[in-house]
Design a protein around this nucleic acid. Sequence first.
RNA 1: UGGGGAUUGGUGUAACGGUAGCACGACUGACUCUGGAUCAGUUAGUCCAGGUUCGAAUCCUGGAUCCCCAGCCA
Length: 628
Amino acid sequence: MSDAPTRSLNFIEQIIEADNAAKRWGAWPDGRPRVCTRFPPEPNGYLHIGHAKSICLNFGLADRYGGQFNLRFDDTNPVKEEQEYVDSIIADVRWLGARWPGMSDAAAKPGAPCDAGVVYASDYFGQMCEWAIELIKKGKAYVCDCTAEEIRRARGTLTRPGANCAHRERTIHENAELFERMRKGEFADGSRTLRAKIDMASANLNLRDPVMYRILHSEHHRQGDKWCIYPMYDWAHGFEDSIEGITHSICTLEFENHRPLYDWFIGAVNDGRTADGGGPWGKRIHHPQQIEFARLNLSYTVMSKRKLLHLVKGGHVGGWDDPRMPTISGLRRRGVTPESIRTFCEQIGVAKFNGVIELQKLESCIRDDLNRRAPRVMAVVRPLKVVIENWPDESKIDWLDAVNNPEDPSAGGRKVPFGKVLYIERDDFLETPPKGYFRLAPGAEVRLRYAYFVRCTSVVKDPATGEVTEVRCTYDPATRGGDAPDGRKVKGTIHWVSAAQALDAEVRLYETLFAKPDPEDTDDAAAEADSATMPGAGAPTSATSGGAAAAEAWLANLNPNSLQKVAAKIEPNWHDAAKTATWSDGITRVQFERVGYFCLDRDSTASRLVFNRTVTLKDSWAKAAGKS
RNA sequence: UGGGGAUUGGUGUAACGGUAGCACGACUGACUCUGGAUCAGUUAGUCCAGGUUCGAAUCCUGGAUCCCCAGCCA
């Protein structure tokens, strides 16, 4: 299927290939072995890069084996789910590049709601309800009048078995009648449940008579008020996969303990059924195989929906699509390409070991993609004024040739203006340079990229602060274009923009959201937070505020420098270069030479440019300088 | 003496009884009109203890450590 260099199979691919060889799941009409996967999100939050791993895995498997991939919403809990989340999830899955049957490419723009081909667990509620009644009739389920608290107490503990309740022995007739009345809405929320009659002494707590249905008089985002009983995830999930003919039901590790329950439920329905449908209960239903893998953990960020929601609601970030967020929408707004996320998911592999992937791995995938595709332009992020003393006058402009992308000759070139007054990067000038500094310094000569060699003659300082406000240079007219006819070499090449023609831009420089690789590492953070509040006025004194601080101690690890907005200068023809590249999502991405990769933010207007830094370039000088 | 899962360089992932490989990182060097990219090289690993075997990351026994499970959440 793939022409990529052969990679060893991950453990799930090994299972699938063994299944295919054994013809375990039958075949498509054309004879190829059947492989069906799905991505089953609950629409109660935004997708993040951890979900991307699952999407790439499931879609990738279906794609690789010529199978089918479904996008299915697991919308079994109306009190937590919203249409806004449905829309964002569809847009994100589509943006990542997954395709499903019946999908429409018409509304392929992020945010445009179009759910053609998407399936919903809530559409199976009727079928599930019939199966529940079947279990009641088979004596495998009962209506329980216990309160949530009573159920919890009777469940026992990890080391002690639970106890049967009185309702467990109700007659089939009574159960059927009671369940019907539950369904009709005769009982109050929480007053009764339908439970599976399994084993209150099971070592697996999931098998201690789990709840199948609860009473919830709540409006469902798709079903409206059609239902007042809703299936529990454990009861519903296996059947959703069964109905869709999913062959490999891939989920994360924490559901491993639930697999015996899913198997029990399907087995209970199939009990008394036959392959040809000849028995009293009809035809056997499909029984998918569940396979569990380790979810993605990434350093310098958090991945739990709860924490992400807390960051949004607490105003610690600008929203779900804040470029510092690990959400798909955040990564997209930051300028990350779907291609690089797919490469990342491919490279991190799939296994059952619960580890942490280093952020550098993601960044490496992003750089690798952007290096190949992003057009180069010159922009000065922290401008320092430069005056060319021997440039004839301010009205003289020299238009020089610049290459749009050295990695892609087809991107061509453009003209950049050069004049008497320029801006260079503040970091590219040092009054007293350390050893090994190749950039501009008093008396030193550097090349201005695509332009001329210049030599620094003097500096102008702010008398009050001593800060260098202007650098004065002379240029060598013979070096036009960047090469010296006398063969003289220069160690440093720096980027620049001409002050007269430069465009203003707001540039948002992002760093990691958290200051520590592991945001949960709060041992010293909590201590720091405590000591930090001590000297201040109005330090919290109550036990409750202390407790609240401890509960969200990870917030103390937020990186205070995660966002810096700077006023930058960018060359006037930057867009001529930018438009030579095409991106599947229409986002404008460029490299600011020697600085990093940036994308045009949606806050931009005709008169205001706003760029987000996607990722920096590797900076071996900063690394070397940081060491000494 | 509750149950389930896991453990290979700094990080992740291969090797399925027969040379412990790959990627990212780190470090050297080469090259360079991006201190980018590229190229070459170096570093560093089988959780522990026994056993089986000509041979063990792999099989067996025992131990250690980590993760998950006591929602009418998913």
